[in-house]
């Protein structure tokens, strides 16, 4: 029975829990992607900021056309792109951080039997 328990422990430590860590890790990665709305921001990168749109009018009015196009619609799209780019970059930086932290956590878990025993032995040596 003890051998069965030991075998179960190995399966649990090196297969079951890593699977769960990967699942939680991917949840964080996916959540961050969604939190910064990276796909939506990329898809709407050049869209008007907050749908802030100036109509060009029905009649041909060159000045109004220029005013709407240059001063308003282009500006709205530019501000939109600026904000979106900032958030996309910020989101990707945090995404990278989550990836690194997750990886470190997984490695620490996998190596934890060795690390904990080493720490124990180090403690014994140092204290006594």
């Amino acid at each position: 029975m003890e051998r069965v328990i030991f075998y179960n422990y190995l399966v649990w430590h090196f297969i079951d829990i890593p699977k769960k860590i990967i699942k939680g890790w991917s949840n964080f990665l996916y959540f961050n992607f969604n939190y910064f709305s990276i796909p939506v921001l990329i898809m709407t990168l050049f869209s008007h900021y907050r749908r802030y749109y100036y109509p060009y009018g029905d009649k041909l009015d060159p000045w109004r056309y220029v005013e709407a196009f240059v001063f308003n619609n282009i500006l709205s799209r530019f501000i939109g792109m600026l904000f979106r780019s900032i958030f996309i970059i910020l989101g990707l930086i945090i995404e990278t951080l989550i990836f690194i932290i997750g990886l470190l956590f997984l490695l620490t878990w996998l190596l934890s039997p060795v690390l904990s025993i080493s720490l124990f032995l180090f403690g014994i040596n140092t204290a006594f």
Binding site: F31, Y35, S37, T44, Y52, R84
Partner: peptide, 18 residues
């Protein structure tokens, strides 16, 4: 994910109007 997603999104609303 169900617990994380409750935090909502930061920028999804930018694609929508005021």
């Amino acid at each position: 994910y169900d617990n994380l997603v409750r935090k909502g999104t930061l920028a999804k609303e930018w694609a929508s109007g005021y």
